[in-house]
Amino acid sequence: MQVKVLLFASVAEKAGVRKIQLDLERGDRVCDVRDRLLRAYPQLSPHVPTLMYALDEEYVREDALVPDGATLALIPPVSGG
């Protein structure tokens, strides 16, 4: 199944990419997607402890199931305002 991953701010800068299309196994969770990204972009590992995740624009825990066609956003600590 297809999943789109969005990267922002420090994480996008570190990875050098803002959007990644992935082909996943059905039943994959957010943490599985993250771990797969870490294999391709090991430079992101220092960010993992503070990362939050959003599936289709809603914050989710890292054990949330990723539906087919979803958009997963990696959200570093926010600093708006």
Binding site: A9, A54, Y59, G80, G81
Partner: peptide
């Protein structure tokens, strides 16, 4: 609440 939750980042 906005400063804590809204996905916006400043550099």
């Amino acid at each position: 609440a906005i400063k804590k939750q809204v996905p916006v980042w400043k550099k």
